[in-house]
Design a protein around this nucleic acid. Structure first.
Lengths: 197, 197
DNA sequence: TGCTAAGTGGAGACCCCCATCCGCTTGGCT
DNA sequence: AGCCAAGCGGATGGGGGTCTCCACTTAGCA
C-alpha cells in the first residue's frame, strides 16, 4: 500500500469515528469523505461497504469495553468493580452516538468470539458481586442489555445533557441492583437475543 | 366535506395509527395510503404534510396520558397512583413504536398548552407522593423524562419482548424512587428542554 | 336525471443516500 | 528522469422517500 493511501485511510477512520460519535451512524458517506478531504471512491476502495467502515471504526471501542471489564475483575471490591463497569460502559455509550448502533449492527456475525468472551467475563463479574453479598441475587447478566438499551435511549440529547442524564439514570439503577431492598422486579430475565430484534 | 371523503379520512387515520404503532414513524406515506385503500394524493389533501398526520394520529394517545394522570390523582394511595402513571405511560410507549417520536416531534409548537397542563398535573402527583412520605424527596419531576427516554430505548425490540423488558426496567426504577434508600443520585435534575435536543 | 364542484389516484418531479465506473494524477522503483 | 500501476475524485446509476399535478370519477343538490 502506497504511503499516501495509508495516510488517507487513517484520516478517513479518524473522521469517521468523529462523525459517528457526533451524529450517529446515519451520517452520509459523502460527509465523511468531504471532511476527510478525499473523494467518495477512495472511501469505498478501502472499505467496500459502509458497514465495514463502521465495524472497523468501532473495534477499538469494543476492545476498550473488554478492558474495562478485565480491570474491574482486578478490583478487590467486587461491588465497586461492578458499578465501574456499568458506569464506564454507559458513559462510553452516551458520549458516542454511534456506539450502540454499531454494536448491534456488528452483532450477528462479526466479533462473535469477542462477544462471547465479553459475555463470560461480565457474567463472572456479576457472579463475584453476588457472592460478595452486595449485588442482589436475582440480578441477571441479561439485565446488562436492559441497562444498555435504556441508557441508549438518552443518546438523542446533546452530549453534555446526555452524560448528566445517564449519570443520574445509572445511579438510580445501581441503587436498585444493590442488596437490601425487598421488592422484586418481574421474574423474567429476558435473553438478549429476544431484546435485540 | 363529502361523506365518502369523511370516511376516507377516518380510515387513513386508523391505518396510520396502526402502522405507526407497529413500525414507527418512518413508514412511508405510500404504505399508509395503500393499506387504507386510497391514493397518495388523498392522503396529502387531508394532511398537508406527514408531520400533520402524525400529530393528528397521536392526539388521542396524548389525551390518554392526561387521563391516566388525572385518574392517578384520585387514587387514595399516593404512591400507588404515582407508580400506576409511570407503569401505564411506559407500557403505552413500548407498545406503540411511534409514540415517543411523535411526542418529541410535536413538542416545539403544537400542544403546548396540553403539554403544560400535563406537566403541572404530573408535578402535583409527584408532590403528593412526596408528602405521603413514600416518594424520595430528591425525586424531580424532570426525572419523568429520564424514565421516558430510558424506557424508549427498549422500543426497538419486538413488542412482547419490549413489554417484558419495560416492566422489569420500570420495576427497578420504581424501587429506586421509593424512600428508604440512603445513597443519592447525582444532584442535577436536568430540565427536559435540555434533554430533548 | 343531469350538472358541477368536490374528490380521487397514479405518474412523476425533486431530493438524499449507497455504491460503482472511468479518465486523470502521482508515488516511488529503476 | 521516466514509467506505470496504484491511487484518486467527480459523474453517475439505482432505490426509496416526500410531496405535486392533472385528467378522470362521483356524490348530492335541483
Amino acid at each position: 500500500m502506497r504511503a499516501d493511501a495509508r495516510e488517507n485511510r487513517a484520516r478517513v477512520l479518524t473522521v469517521a469515528r468523529e462523525l459517528f460519535a457526533e451524529r450517529g451512524l446515519d451520517v452520509p458517506m459523502a460527509a465523511i469523505a468531504r471532511r476527510a478531504g478525499v473523494g467518495v471512491a477512495t472511501l469505498y476502495r478501502r472499505f467496500p461497504t459502509k458497514e465495514s467502515l463502521v465495524v472497523e471504526a468501532f473495534t477499538e471501542q469494543f476492545a476498550h469495553c473488554q478492558a474495562v471489564i478485565d480491570d474491574a475483575m482486578q478490583d478487590p471490591d467486587a461491588w465497586r468493580g461492578f458499578c465501574t463497569v456499568i458506569e464506564q460502559v454507559c458513559l462510553l455509550q452516551v458520549r458516542d452516538r454511534g456506539f450502540t448502533a454499531a454494536f448491534v449492527a456488528s452483532f450477528p456475525e462479526l466479533h462473535s468470539e469477542v462477544r462471547d468472551r465479553t459475555w463470560t467475563s461480565f457474567s463472572a463479574l456479576v457472579q463475584r458481586a453476588k457472592d460478595s453479598g452486595q449485588l442482589r441475587a436475582d440480578f441477571s447478566p441479561h439485565d446488562l442489555m436492559l441497562v444498555l438499551l435504556a441508557n441508549n435511549g438518552l443518546s438523542g440529547a446533546p452530549v453534555e445533557a446526555a452524560v448528566a442524564a445517564s449519570r443520574r439514570l445509572v445511579a438510580y439503577l445501581l441503587e436498585s441492583f444493590r442488596t437490601g431492598t425487598d421488592a422484586l422486579p418481574p421474574p423474567v430475565p429476558l435473553s438478549l437475543d429476544l431484546v435485540l430484534n
